[in-house]
Amino acid sequence: MKKDNYIEPSNGVLTSKMDIGTNEFKEFQAILLNKSRERSITQKSEIELLSLKFEMEDYFESEEQEVKLPGEFLKQYLKTLKIPQKRFANYINLKPSNLSKLIKGERPINYELAHIFGNLFDNDPLLWIEIQAKNELKKISQTRKNDFHYSLNDLINK
């Protein structure tokens, strides 16, 4: 960022409301549309990949109830990059049938695969494992909640 002699705000309000629907607003959108079209295919792809990374991070941090499998994120990555699943499976030395199971959540992502995905998609390998672990814990706590009636008090006093 260039360093200018700008003046720091003297009021807490830092924006004005956008004049949605006016001709000038439409003109503003047209300017951005042109800027967007000027982007290279590489940059568009870079933005889409980063978007997926943020989506994964946000899913892990969120408390939303809907479960999203790490395999679904993988599927989105391959779709964004337009890489056929079979080609991807061959590239990472995985049987296509096993990749399919992994995407459906029928086969877990191991540490090695997490490293491969992290390396390929420029995200933290731990994130793949963490999302998987989060989903598993949620599943167990929902389906077997009556099994977990342990207490430290009981343990000490028995």
Binding site: P9, N11, V13, T15, S16, K17, M18, D19, K35, I47
Partner: peptide, 9 residues
């Protein structure tokens, strides 16, 4: 995607 827009004071 990737554009944050606003009206500045």
């Amino acid at each position: 995607m990737g554009f944050l827009t606003f009206v500045s004071k």
